[in-house]
């Protein structure tokens, strides 16, 4: 039901992000998407890729602080209003979303979100007939 997302803890220092991406590329890992959020003192880079298990072990071995997190990936038609409909489902179903991002992938809109209510969210996705994105 979920996909594995890799989160990497980074210092707010030039060059720290490039090390992550270089390490992944040297291991032959293909990125699907990534986001970077920062606070005053540090940043967290979230990555979806074609081989999260390998990405996790590569980055861990290279000494990065890494966490593997299950996130939901929903495929949506590339039409206005589809994302709003999907999010409304979760709001109505009482699922709290801790973060969300979206991108276009192979002609489809993809909505990625994180919630701690994994089982409830999975049940709701099935019930509403939302389709999972194939990444």
């Amino acid at each position: 039901m979920t996909v594995q997302q890799i989160s990497v803890f980074l210092e707010n220092k030039s060059g720290s992000l490039v090390k992550v991406f270089r390490a992944l590329s040297q291991a032959g890992i293909q990125l699907i998407t990534s986001t970077l959020a920062d606070t005053a003192d540090y940043g967290v880079c979230r990555i979806l890729c074609d081989n999260p298990d390998k990405a996790y072990s590569v980055l861990s071995q290279d000494g990065f602080s890494v966490t593997k997190t299950p996130v939901f990936a929903i495929a949506l038609d590339d039409q206005p209003g589809r994302a709003a409909d999907a999010i409304a489902c979760f709001a109505d179903g009482g699922i709290s979303i801790s973060y969300l991002y979206s991108f276009l992938y192979e002609g489809k809109g993809v909505l990625i979100f994180r919630t701690s209510d994994l089982d409830k969210a999975a049940a709701l996705i099935a019930e509403k007939g939302l389709s999972e994105a194939k990444l």
Partner: peptide, 15 residues
């Protein structure tokens, strides 16, 4: 330094 047991995906937890 963070250990391997820190959940770095969770900003609120880190803060």
């Amino acid at each position: 330094e963070l250990s391997d047991r820190a959940n770095v995906d969770d900003y609120a937890a880190l803060q």
